[in-house]
Structure formats: structure tokens, C-alpha cells
Amino acid sequence: MPKSQNPFEIDFDSYILQSEPSMQEKGKLWQTAIGLQQVDGLTPSKYLYETAKRNIDGEITIEEAKQLIDSYYESKENRTSNDDDKEEADKVSVRIREILAENTFSFTPDLLLSIHKRLFEGVFYKVKAGQFRNYNISKKEWVLDGESVFYANADMIYQTLDYDFSHEKTFDYSKLTMEEKINHLARFIANIWQIHPFGEGNTRTTAVFTIKYLNSLGFKVNNEPF
């Protein structure tokens, strides 16, 4: 992740390179969680960075960090649209940090639902967290130079996901080179993303799922691929 010029950000690289193992790991998790907000053009607040630093330093637990972020926005007055963006970035960052630290994984479409619900419950109001969309959408994507993408029909989302998951679950990686493995994994993840099962939050949900899936396969992943 490129180093930001924001003066209150943590120097994650210093934590990762110079700290004890537990601090290194927490630094990596926070770096990924915060970095993934960039896929939707969001930047966390100064308070989130301060809270992340306290967690990395061992001063507070991740659960206490979540509570501090929630309380911070509950008590905030005279809100602006910028505050709404900061709240989304802060809350989703701390939730990603929590999920990525958990040593659990289930290779099913239901995990996508679970991740989406945990990331966006109480954050999104126009769409329901943890539910597949029930309407068809198409959007112009900046990653495709503004070209439109047509996603899966709403009434076929679960069936399409189930097909892709079933195919991936039985796929044999044993005879592939590393490059071939990576190419296949990239195709699988691209298929999941193009289904776009949720009204909002697809990229971050898919990214978190991807990191956990790759970790389960023995890969070490940060936010840079995203």
C-alpha cells in the first residue's frame, strides 16, 4: 500500500519490520483493514488511527476498539456527509481487522453473507446487510475505465454462487505451477465479484473472503492485490 501523506496515520511498515511478533501481526491486519477502504474511495478518521495504534500497542483489545468507535459516532453532533463516510470507513475497518484475526473459515456462499452482515450491519441503510440483493443492477466501474458491468440476475444469485463454489471446491491444484494456481484463483474470485450478490459492499466483502480463503490455502495476503 503506498505511504500516505496524512500526518496522523500510523507508520505500519515500522510496526511490521521492527516490532515484536504480536505487534507485527496486528500491524499487518490494521494495514489491510484500513487499506481496503480505498477500494471505495474512503479514508478513516484520525480517531480510528489513534484507536488502531492503541490496539497494536496492546493497550486495548479489538472488542474495546469496536466499542470506542461505536461510542465515538453515537456521541458525535452536527454531522456532515463527510462524517458519514468517515463512520463507514472507521466501523468497517475495525470489523475487517476483527474478522481477519479469526482462525475460522467455511468455504460456502453463506460465509459471504456472514461477512457482509458483520461488516455493514448498522452502516448501510439503503441495503440490508447480510442479504443478497433482490433486484438487478448494472454499474460503471472505475477499474474498467468507466465501462458498465452487468451482474448476475437477482433470482439466480445463490444458484450461480453455488455453481462456482462447487466447481472450486473440487478443483485439483496439485499439478499446477504457482502461476497457474494464482491465475485460477484470480478467475474464481473475479467470478464471485462479477456476480455482485449485494446491493453495496461487494468489493470489500469479496476481498475479506478472498484473504481468508487464500490464508486457508497457505498463502499470505495483504491489501495490495485489491
Rank of each mutant, 00 (worst) to 15 (best):
Y158E: 00
E179R: 11
G58P: 11
E98Q: 12
N183G: 11
S166H: 04
S19I: 01
F165K: 04
S71A: 14
F8L: 11
F105D: 03
E50M: 06
D11H: 11
G146T: 00
T108Q: 10
A152H: 01
N103L: 00
L113D: 03
D85N: 09
E98P: 07
D172I: 02
I69N: 12
N6W: 14
N191D: 15
G27V: 11
V208F: 10
N103I: 00
H196T: 14
D70R: 14
S22M: 02
F209D: 14
T205M: 03
K140M: 11
I195F: 13
L112K: 00
D11Q: 07
V127G: 07
N134D: 13
T177M: 10
E141F: 09
Q131G: 01
G218P: 08
T51F: 02
D172P: 06
Q5P: 10
E88M: 11
F219V: 00
N223W: 12
H196L: 15
D84Y: 15
W142V: 10
T32M: 08
L48A: 06
N78F: 15
G130N: 03
G201L: 05
Y151L: 10
K181V: 03
E20P: 01
V221Q: 08
I195S: 04
G35C: 05
D145A: 02
L185F: 07
F150G: 06
A207L: 10
S22P: 00
N136A: 13
Y158V: 01
W142S: 14
G199S: 07
L29F: 09
E224F: 08
K117A: 11
E147R: 08
V143F: 15
N136E: 13
Y135L: 03
E50L: 08
G41I: 04
H196F: 15
K53C: 01
L48W: 08
I34S: 12
D162I: 00
H116V: 05
T210K: 11
F198P: 08
E121P: 15
L111A: 02
H167Q: 09
D83I: 03
K26N: 12
A152T: 08
K181F: 09
P197C: 11
F188Q: 03
F226A: 04
P7K: 15
F12L: 13
Y213G: 00
N215E: 06
I96L: 09
Y158K: 01
L113M: 09
G41P: 11
E25T: 01
A186K: 05
R187N: 13
E63F: 03
N183T: 05
